[in-house]
């Protein structure tokens, strides 16, 4: 599988993303909490640029033992990225559409070579 250069490691900071073009394909590469994740940049909804929007923590509703609601919170552990066209949210670590986890963006492997980051496309 051909390797596509993404960025130099020291220029790709945590919390950032890059979009790389491989022929007609587009891949979004995220650096999140030290790890790299790469997904197709074509949203499963209407084909929007899925990797080019906000990254934002999952919203959770917490319940007490008696099932009453404590209200809404941002998750401490699950990060999402959001397609900017209509707001469809994807799990950063899996590429799953969080409203229906049977749907997933195509995932690509990211490799580090020395101080450079590549995606296998």
């Amino acid at each position: 599988m051909p390797e596509k250069f993404v960025a130099r490691l020291d220029e790709f900071k945590d919390g950032e993303r890059r979009i790389v073009f491989v022929g007609d394909n587009e891949i979004g590469v995220f650096r999140h909490q030290g790890a790299f994740y790469a997904y197709s940049n074509f949203c499963l909804h209407q084909g929007g640029p899925a990797c080019e929007g906000l990254t934002i923590a999952k919203v959770e509703e917490r319940l007490r033992p008696d099932k009453t609601s404590m209200g809404l919170y941002f998750s401490e552990s699950e990060m999402h990225f959001v397609c900017p066209w209509h707001g469809m949210e994807y799990d950063m670590k899996t590429g799953e559409c969080v409203a229906d986890r049977r749907k997933k963006l195509k995932k690509f492997q990211v490799v580090q070579k020395g101080d450079e980051v590549y995606v296998l496309a």
Binding site: G48, P49, G53, L54, T55, I56, A57, F74, P84, W85
Partner: peptide, 20 residues
């Protein structure tokens, strides 16, 4: 976004946003 996390974006460009 949440807790002050910032996503830097250039200005909006409708043509670019709708490239797909």
């Amino acid at each position: 976004a949440d807790r002050g996390r910032r996503v830097t974006v250039e200005e909006l460009n409708t043509t670019r946003l709708l490239a797909h």
